[in-house]
Simulated scan of single mutants.
Amino acid sequence: MRILLLLLPIALTGCSVARAVITAPIKAGEAIYDAATESQEEADIKRGRAARKAEEKAARDARKAEKARDAEGRPYRVGGPR
């Protein structure tokens, strides 16, 4: 009986290794599925980020256009004032 109690921890260690080996393909499949799909929240975050970038670019372009005026307030032409 004592021998069985001494061997029990060794036997249980093998079970955890076997469980890890058996569940590894399932975990790999879950990781691939998560990488391949996009949740609604992730899609919303992406759209929000793209909208903010577009607004920032529009604001930069507006500031750039405002600075590109001559002394009388007329906008410069593409080649500059002539």
Results as ranks from 00 to 15, higher is better:
1 M>E: 00
1 M>L: 08
1 M>P: 00
2 R>A: 03
3 I>D: 12
4 L>S: 07
5 L>Y: 05
5 L>C: 09
8 L>P: 02
9 P>F: 05
10 I>M: 13
11 A>D: 00
11 A>G: 07
12 L>Q: 09
13 T>G: 14
14 G>R: 05
14 G>T: 02
14 G>I: 06
16 S>E: 09
19 R>F: 12
20 A>S: 15
22 I>S: 05
24 A>M: 07
24 A>R: 15
26 I>F: 03
26 I>N: 08
30 E>Q: 14
34 D>M: 14
34 D>P: 05
35 A>L: 03
35 A>K: 12
35 A>C: 05
38 E>S: 11
38 E>R: 14
40 Q>S: 06
41 E>F: 08
45 I>W: 01
47 R>W: 07
48 G>E: 04
49 R>I: 06
53 K>V: 03
53 K>M: 09
53 K>F: 02
56 E>H: 06
56 E>K: 08
57 K>E: 14
59 A>F: 04
62 A>I: 03
63 R>M: 13
63 R>Y: 01
63 R>C: 04
66 E>T: 09
67 K>L: 13
67 K>Q: 14
68 A>Q: 01
70 D>E: 01
71 A>E: 15
72 E>A: 11
73 G>H: 07
75 P>C: 03
78 V>T: 14
78 V>R: 13
79 G>K: 08
80 G>F: 05
81 P>L: 01
